[in-house]
Amino acid sequence: MSELGIVYALLGAALAVLLAGAGSAIGVGIAGQAAAGVVTEDPSKFAKVLIMQLLPGTQGIYGLLVGFLTLSKIGLIGGGAANLDPKTGLMILAACLPIGIVGLISGKYQGMTSAAAIGIVAKKPDQFGKAMLFPAMVETYAILALLISIIAVTGIQV
């Protein structure tokens, strides 16, 4: 029973990495298909569409960051595992959920927005800056979720 706390906390770290990473994988995959379509016809646009494709990749990094913070918090990195009670374990799990869930959803939709923006770059490469703003807007909500997850994980007393 005394190990249940650490299991909950580890589950939180896993969900943050897993869900946010999955969101990025989906998003980068969608944007990558669009990027490949443009480069098939116009290889000179490779650099521009590659940047667009990478935009949904940040959610996975955010999930990884929260995962590291959590593992460090519970002592699985750089020391012995903390003796957590189930309530604290659940609190850490809850703290990891914002970046996990928002990372998954925003990753997918940022990928779709990037794919649409790649269409702008295909037709009007001089509008690259404006085109990049549309998928960047989706990033805002991943950052907000990241902030809450970081504040919550670091704020929980172990």
Binding site: Q33, A34, A36, G37, V38, E41, A115, A122
Partner: peptide
Amino acid sequence: TYAVARIRA
């Protein structure tokens, strides 16, 4: 997605 982006080009 791939096809539409290619069509845009």
